[in-house]
Amino acid sequence: MRKESKDAAYWKANIRLIGISLVIWALVSFGFGILLRPMLSGIAVGGTDLGFWFAQQGSILVFLALIFFYAWRMNKLDAQHGVNEE
């Protein structure tokens, strides 16, 4: 039984991390790139505004950072909860 509750804590931590990551994922693409673009229109970037940059480049860079952050964090979580392979 002890092992199961340990797995449950691991899964809970994972869900929390996924939640945070997906909030950022949605914020940079649907948020800054589309819905919140009018709010960012005051910030000029190379002949246009920040929202345009997020839609065409910024969101992609954030996606990259998110995947590597998640992989790094999860590999640490695996070790902490003793659920890693090997």
């Binding site: 996924i18 992609i60 995947i67």
Partner: peptide
């Protein structure tokens, strides 16, 4: 122009879902 940024965000953002929700 801008309106078709959807392709850029859509076809890269899917990898976040893949990495977090499915692949492992």
């Amino acid at each position: 122009g801008y309106d078709n940024s959807t392709f850029l965000m859509g076809w890269t953002g899917g990898y976040v879902l893949l990495a977090l929700l499915l692949a492992p």
